[in-house]
Design a protein around this nucleic acid. Structure first.
Lengths: 117, 117
DNA sequence: TAATTTTGTTTCTGTATCGAAACAAAAGAG
DNA sequence: CTCTTTTGTTTCGATACAGAAACAAAATTA
């Protein structure tokens, strides 16, 4: 498996993401979104900031951007109203599923390529 | 294989890319860079613009950004001096290799997870 | 209750990027 | 040679995002 073989699906998926002009997320916003949807919560601003090694204001602004598209929502922790829990939304789940389909398709192509290509 | 299993390595790699603060490329710039390095050339501005479905000025600007980091270089086609060939550089190859290592590491982790996790 | 700490947001200034349109240069057509 | 087409860059006005610092609100400490 050469580096090229390894990276080709990544290239294809990224090109797909650029082509379809749906919500145009930065790398930081993608990392944040996938973290919220794929790793166990609760996801607070502080934890996300530490996990991603990104300043808190940047997390806050990224949440603004993702919220505008309805991909995540904020909810105050009732037991400690300082804390913001970042939560999933139906739109966000749909968006993630669509992304997963792109990845699956491109991975499948790449695997076929390894057999027949 | 659930969508989550499929996407976790993507999440991990994207988080790594955000964490290490090296050249901070947008998704568009990544798609462009990987296209130049992983698909057969020659890569002209026009072809890249059509392949990525992105306006030519955006390609031109992205090439500026990548060139500043030394990740690609421009070379005029001698036989038709209008045409710009986008070419690889040693620094760019190194950068791609480092990225491939991150992907490999994360894929390996994910595969282990499938066995033992 | 007053001072301090923790959590997250907002402001500030500067840089980067966007799409559309205008532009310049080279090649081709008549 | 002149006009048109092709290729890529630059300009334009507007928007988005960066890090640092200031800020507000809730919780904790003394």
């Amino acid at each position: 498996m050469t580096p090229t073989d390894l990276l080709l699906p990544w290239r294809d998926v990224m090109v797909d993401m650029v082509r379809l002009d749906r919500p145009d997320l930065s790398m930081r916003q993608w990392a944040l979104l996938l973290t919220v949807y794929l790793t166990p919560g609760p996801h607070t601003v502080r934890r996300l900031s530490e996990d991603l090694n990104v300043p808190k204001p940047a997390i806050s602004r990224a949440l603004d951007a993702l919220s505008i598209h309805g991909l995540v929502k904020r909810a105050r922790d009732p037991s400690d109203k300082r804390i913001v829990q970042v939560q999933k939304t139906p739109e966000g789940s749909l968006f993630i599923d669509e992304f997963a389909q792109i990845v699956e398709e491109r991975d499948r192509q790449s695997d076929l390529g390894a057999y027949y290509g």
